[in-house]
């Protein structure tokens, strides 16, 4: 196509005008695309949010893959293999979105991996935890993915188009994940006393992590929170606490219906305020975990680093075949 752009005077806009136009587009509900002008704080907020989301999917594959070979039937082996595959696939989608956002900074997937290894790029608290039993694989599928569905559907209408489209794909697959988790949990809950004990013990172990997953209610709790910017620029709509409350509403009755006991005697729905009252998790522990001080943080990072370095020769070799 003939490039006619030189025939026209490019529209000269000051930074203020560009920002005003950008803000107007967001307020009109328009989607921002990768090559559109966007203010640095919007780009940087997206990079931070989506790289953490993407790398969490990739790191999240590790605790679950531990149970792939051990899954207790041929069908379970297939189901959990497909699920771990999806996690890596979600990581792929999200990293592609971030990679395009990072272009002006001349950064690539390799830089994201370096940031992960140096601790600059964090991943979700839940993936720092050990998976000790098969029931933990079920809990991850049912409740961790349940929590993830709540946070991800909250961003389906994100103002950044490529992220919204990646989330559409991801959420469609999360429906399978939720049912995969339910199926494992249901079998254990209806099983032998040992199987029932296994799932109760798993719930006891994971409850606090699940509450932490949504993040602190306010930045006063841990010192940082990006939720104000993400809401103002229509990347998400609900606050961390609203999402946590949604999780209680959707999952507490289901957990209890299976005869499981939630390990928080203070948990109750307060009719007057319309809110769930619950015991706060230890937020200093949360901070420690996402900074790499969780029970399995070092091992999981070491595993990722070892495999990444061992395979460097493959990427170098194939880079030679680029044409």
């Amino acid at each position: 196509m003939y490039d006619a752009t030189h025939l026209f005077e490019p529209e000269v806009m000051t930074e203020e005008e560009k920002l005003a136009r950008f803000t107007e587009r967001i307020e009109n509900g328009e989607k921002i695309e990768a090559d559109d002008w966007m203010p640095a704080f919007y780009r940087d907020t997206l990079i931070k949010l989506i790289s953490m989301h993407g790398i969490s999917e990739i790191m999240g594959a590790l605790p679950e893959k531990e149970w792939v070979p051990k899954a207790p039937s041929l069908r379970r082996k297939l189901g959990i293999m497909a699920k771990v595959q999806d996690e890596m696939g979600h990581g792929q989608l999200l990293l592609r979105v971030v990679e395009d956002l990072m272009k002006p900074y001349e950064k690539t997937r390799g830089d994201l991996m370096d940031d992960l290894f140096t601790g600059r790029l964090k991943f979700h608290n839940v993936f720092h935890m050990p998976t000790r039993t098969w029931a933990d694989a079920g809990t991850i599928g049912w409740l961790v993915d349940g929590a993830a569905i709540i946070t991800q559907t909250n961003m389906l209408g994100a103002s950044y188009g490529p992220y919204a489209r990646a989330l559409q794909r991801i959420c469609a697959e999360e429906v399978f994940h939720a049912q995969h988790g339910e199926s494992i949990i249901m079998a254990l809950a209806e099983g032998t006393p040992e199987q029932k004990a296994m799932i109760q013990e798993s719930l006891d172990e994971w409850w606090e992590s699940l509450l932490m997953f949504f993040g602190p209610a306010t930045k006063e709790t841990t010192g940082t929170s990006k939720q104000d910017i993400t809401i103002a620029y229509k990347i998400r709509t609900k606050t961390n606490e609203e999402l946590r409350q949604n999780f209680f509403t959707k999952y507490v009755p289901r957990i209890q219906s299976l005869g499981l006991v939630i390990p928080d005697p203070t948990l109750r729905f307060d009719e007057e305020s319309g809110q769930w009252i619950y015991a706060q998790p230890d937020w200093s522990e949360f901070k420690k975990i996402i900074q790499g001080g969780g029970p399995r943080s070092k091992e999981r990072l070491a595993l990722r680093r070892t495999s990444y370095q061992n395979n460097a020769w493959v990427r170098e070799a194939l880079a030679e075949t680029m044409a």
Binding site: G110, E316, L318, A319, M322
Partner: peptide, 8 residues
């Protein structure tokens, strides 16, 4: 230098 990660 960061690693080459192929092309899009």
């Amino acid at each position: 230098m960061t690693e080459t990660f192929y092309q899009e």
